[in-house]
């Protein structure tokens, strides 16, 4: 599904697309591939979902989004699907996931992110969300981010090495 040339291609562009008029031709040069071949492969990898998205990652703090809340809820297993779908409908909810609870110390299984420019407004939005989704009685916590140590995405190995070929 991902061949050796794909891995080279993925490795070549993981730090970013070249900022030149014909970026895909430029990528191909280093890999001995024609522009057309690169375009075909990139399109296929995107279609396969290996490339989740092609575009930008913004530094949300630099855009003024400094009130970033991770909100966690302890939702009954029988309701989580329905509540998760509901929560994700709100425009101010930027991400929404179900994750495994970690015992009594951390019993939360539904996570959502609200990125805002103002803490009070984020808390108002959260109140509205809780009311609308029937989450007022639900055990929950709000964790605002204080500082960001690292935000550059993971560096993948991208080598069709032996470990990988065993799969």
């Amino acid at each position: 599904m991902i061949d050796a040339i794909d891995w080279q291609l993925l490795a070549r562009v993981q730090q970013g697309l070249p900022l030149v008029s014909r970026p895909y031709a430029d990528i191909g040069k280093g890999l001995n591939l024609s522009e057309n071949e690169v375009l075909k492969r990139v399109a296929r990898l995107k279609q396969q979902g290996v490339i989740k998205r092609l575009g930008v990652v913004v530094n949300h703090r630099r855009l003024g989004y400094t009130a970033n809340a991770m909100v966690v809820f302890d939702v009954a297993a029988s309701l989580i699907e329905q509540i998760g779908e509901h929560v994700s409908q709100f425009s101010f909810v930027n991400l929404c996931y179900q994750r495994p609870a970690q015992g009594e110390q951390w019993p939360y299984n539904l996570y959502c992110m609200i990125h805002g420019k103002n803490k009070e407004k984020v808390l108002q939005q959260l109140e509205y969300l809780k009311q609308s989704c029937g989450l007022l009685q639900c055990k929950s916590e709000v964790l605002f981010s204080k500082q960001c140590f690292k935000q550059r995405g993971a560096l993948y190995q991208m080598s069709p090495d032996q470990e990988k070929e065993k799969v």
Binding site: V13, L17, L19, K52, L54, G55, V58, N59, R152, G153
Partner: peptide, 11 residues
Amino acid sequence: GILSRFGPLYH
């Protein structure tokens, strides 16, 4: 640094 990345995001 307003953009932290430009290019593909992998799955």
